[in-house]
Design a binder for these strands. Structure first.
Lengths: 235, 235
DNA sequence: CAGTGTGAACCTTTTCACAGCA
DNA sequence: TGCTGTGAAAAGGTTCACACTG
């Protein structure tokens, strides 16, 4: 049950896999624009984004026909269209919960501001953390989240707490009116329907690499004995 | 061209999607074991890991038949099997390159040590950073990477540099003998075949959330006018 | 008889290959 | 002529449903 468009409601949704790649195209296009390039073919864009040209064409075709046959895509125009599609024409206020090592790093991370996200609030449960200055912000107690969300118009919450606190913090965020959560803590999280959640677990990424690394060792061994092998995926 | 097993070489590879979930099962199982539970059904494990029970059974079936019909899975035994499959019975030495905000946070991140990864080296190109102590380690110049890799037996490199430095750092890592790279910098990275790469871009995750957040607003609008809607995926 | 293990159906994503347009 | 846009085919992943077994 992914799509149930009503009568006369054109389905404007874009495949999930494509949504996941649009930010990378945006980044690649920004690099080209900075170099003064005006037009890019699907082949060039694919190279810069690290995917195949067929994927680029298929992905972009979901946004509309923004290319010119025989020529390529107008970079500035395509950047605009992707930004519009991703909803990056407005800027998004985000709240970071859990101001430990990772929370600090996220609060200071330049990459957010550059790409339309404004770190607008830092919250923590620990009274000892409250009042600490991090960059231009002061850490406040998580109890004030409901007011912050209303006053600052926050839509996205980032969780950088220890695993044990995840569900509690997520519940508080949802209660405060936040409807999108990015979770960095190594624990799953349940949220009511209508709230989007993405989880990034740093150790999980390493464990996946370890699997393929180990596999390479095993395969090298097999190969030495005369079997054929295939390389690990690189995503 | 993913698989080309030679004659008499049984294909022991596990689907990529399954590999991506095994670490989560491991985590869920660890939690259950800590609670003193001895056996878990696919239903219980699914709940704890945030997936469906059919997925759990299918995923685990790729490892072998480690469950008991009518009963469930022996937690301790299953943990052992998954750890073995992921290659977590050995511990992996990792090198972190780029000791800025994010590099600091990663160097101090407890979650790595807890799960079989040992941060064994911190490197940077900036001479001003060299010599700085972070936790129990001292930052050394990236030029010493080849010796570090050999002496410490490092296999995995983590890149936490600015985007501009990514490719250079990756090339140095590969030259030094590292064959798995986890990249946190917001730039794509090309590596020779045989080197696995995973990229995690914090701003990309936010951009994906922004898309669904924006979409919810649009859909709420459509719904108000009488159309039917579907919710954004929550992965 | 509860719950695993697994074919088969279904859905999504990727890749192919080429018609059609600037 | 060169490159986009897109149907059609192939591959990969998920869900269903039930035979089988401890």
């Amino acid at each position: 049950m992914r799509h149930r468009p009503g009568p006369h409601v054109r389905d404007r949704s874009i495949p999930e896999a494509t949504v996941g790649r649009l930010p990378r195209y945006l980044q690649a296009l920004a690099g080209m624009a900075a170099d003064g390039t005006a037009v890019a073919s699907s082949e060039e864009l694919a190279l810069a984004a690290g995917v195949t040209s067929a994927k680029v064409r298929k992905d972009l075709s979901h946004l509309g026909s923004y290319g010119t046959r025989g020529v390529g895509y107008d970079i500035a125009y395509l950047i605009h269209q992707i930004r519009r599609e991703l909803g990056l024409t407005q800027d998004w206020g985000i709240a970071i919960a859990g101001i430990g090592n990772l929370g600090h790093a996220l609060a200071n991370y330049k990459g957010f501001g550059d790409r339309g996200f404004r770190v607008a609030a830092l919250v923590d449960v620990d009274p000892a953390k409250v009042g600490e200055r991090v960059g231009e912000l002061e850490v406040v107690h998580i109890d004030t989240l409901p007011e912050l969300v209303k006053e600052l118009g926050l839509a996205i919450g980032v969780i950088a707490t220890p695993a044990i606190a995840v569900q509690d913090v997520a519940d508080r965020m949802v209660a405060a009116g936040i409807r999108s959560i990015l979770n960095f803590a190594p624990a799953p999280l349940v949220a009511p329907p209508g709230v989007s959640v993405r989880s990034v677990d740093l150790a999980v990424e390493l464990q996946i690499l370890a699997y393929y690394e180990q596999r390479k060792a095993v395969l090298a061994d097999v190969r030495r004995r005369g079997g054929a092998v295939a390389f690990a995926p690189t995503r």
